[in-house]
Every structure is written in structure tokens, then in C-alpha cells.
Amino acid sequence: MDLKRTNPGLYYLQRTLFYLLVIVIAVYLLFPFLWAVLTSFRGSGDLFLPPLQFIQAPTTLSNYAQVFANPSFQRGLLFSLIVAVGSVLVSLLFGSFAAYALGRFRFKGKQLIMYIILAVSVFPQIAVLGGLFTLIRTFELFNNPLGLILSYLIFTIPFTVWVLTSFVRDIPGELEEAALVDGASPLQTLFKVLFPVMMPALVTTGLLAFINAWNEYLFALTFTSSNRTVPVVIANYSGASQYDQPWGPIMAASIVVTIPLIALVLIFQRNIVSGLTAGAVKG
């Protein structure tokens, strides 16, 4: 039944309420980020002005200049990039093999393994912090990017395996059968046939794992003392005195750290959206 023709008043009321709800949700989600952007372009003396005066205050780039001139922030960016990229590459490598085995082969204990992976993925970080600290100290990986990469695998690999396993199950079996008929081995089938089809899922899981590793704070704070990641560096920002809280530089650093994530989403949005539900066999 066409509500627009039968009851146009109710139809336009529903559309109006729907768009009002969308606007309210958008404002609620975007307002903190927009306020952080405004704060990053305001001087220290303007931060405690009334809202209208704060919005109309003159723009300055001194906060960004201070952030980029900070050696700790520069090292933190490099260290975070190394740790996040390393975590993503390792988790995708092992996660792909595990997802292929769990999604394609039948063996005893398969469901139990999946439930264990799911349980590990939802386990709180603080619960495993003590055991991880003992391992990191035993293997002398304190202040080492390898130590953070290995610790981040606790939450990146379970997520990667779970998502990729669901995707592998939906890949038509005709692709593997055709590859096996042509004489391909299971590894050749995985690398030359399934990996190209899994590319949208690999991009999606890799991007989400990168975001989690890039923003992680607790492990980075615990397992490092000098080679800090960006979130820890930002949290340790200090002002000219113990009573001075540099909100402007903190917001500027936060915006700088967020820009790479937004850029990655914009670059790979086509890969993320397209192909996830598309069939792999034509005809």
C-alpha cells in the first residue's frame, strides 16, 4: 500500500521525524569531534571562553606547530606505524591460514576452536595484562616494538580469524574444485584462487585491526617506558607547569593521529563495501 497516496499527511510526518532523528544522531556523533577540531585551532587563552565567544575566537596554527616540533610525538608516530602495520601483517597471515582450515575442512574439535577464539576476542585486556607482562619481561621485549606486536596479536588474530572464517565459508566450492582438477595444491589454491576472492575481507579485517592497534593504550603504556606509541605520548602531554593542561596541543595531536585512519577508510571504502556479498562464480 502506497502511504504517500492514501495518507500523505502521515507519510510526510514520518519522513520529517525520520530526518530529525538522523540529524540528532549526526549532531550527537559529530559534535565532540568538531569541538576537538575547534579546540586545536584556538589559543590557550581562548579555551575557557563562553561557547559563542570560543567559536568566534581567532584561528591559530601554533598548537599544530608545537605538536610537530615535539620529538616525542614524531617518534611516537613512527613507533605506532611500525607496531600497527606489523600487527596487521602477522594477524592477516596467520588468520588467513586458520580461516581457510576452519572454513573449508572438517575435523574434530572445530566448533570448540571457534568458541575458544570467540571467547579470547571478548576477553578484557586487563585480565591478561599480568601474564603478558611476565612473558614480555622474560623474553626481554620491553620497550621493543616486537613485544607490542606480539601482545596486540591477542585481540587482532581472533577477530581476523572469526571474520575471515565466515567469509571463506561463503566462497563457492566450485572454485577449489576447478583448481584441484587443474592440478593445484591446497596452498596454490589458497594463494592463487582464494586470496584474490578474499581481498575485500582482507582489506576490511586488516583496516579494523590497524585501527585497534593504532589506538591501543593499555598494553603500550605497560610494556614501554621510552619508545611510546602515539596514544601514550598524547596522554603524557604536559604544560609549562603542573597546573597547566595543554588542551590545544592535545587536541591538535589527536586530530593528526585521526587523519591517517580517516584517509585509510576513504581510500579503501570501495574495497570494503564492494565484493563482500558478490558471488565468486559467474554465470
Rank of each mutant, 00 (worst) to 15 (best):
R75G: 05
F31P: 02
L112H: 06
Y115R: 12
S96K: 00
S72M: 10
V67P: 04
T60P: 06
F97K: 00
Y100L: 04
A57H: 06
F107P: 13
Q56A: 15
F97H: 02
T59A: 11
R15G: 07
F73S: 01
A101C: 08
A98Q: 00
S40T: 03
L20H: 02
F31L: 15
A36G: 15
L52Q: 10
F48P: 00
F48T: 13
I23S: 12
G103C: 10
L49C: 06
L30S: 07
G103S: 08
Y19E: 00
Y100V: 05
L93H: 02
G109P: 07
F105P: 04
L29K: 09
I25H: 03
L112K: 07
A99S: 14
F54H: 09
Q53R: 14
P71D: 01
G86S: 07
R106S: 13
V27F: 13
L93P: 01
A98S: 11
V24E: 06
L89S: 08
L47C: 00
N70E: 04
Y12H: 14
L77H: 02
L20V: 12
L17D: 00
R106V: 09
G95K: 06
G76T: 02
G86D: 09
P32W: 01
G95C: 01
R42F: 01
T59V: 14
G109L: 03
I23V: 12
Q111L: 12
F107Y: 14
R15P: 09
I55G: 10
G76E: 08
F18H: 05
Y115H: 10
V83S: 04
S87T: 14
L112I: 13
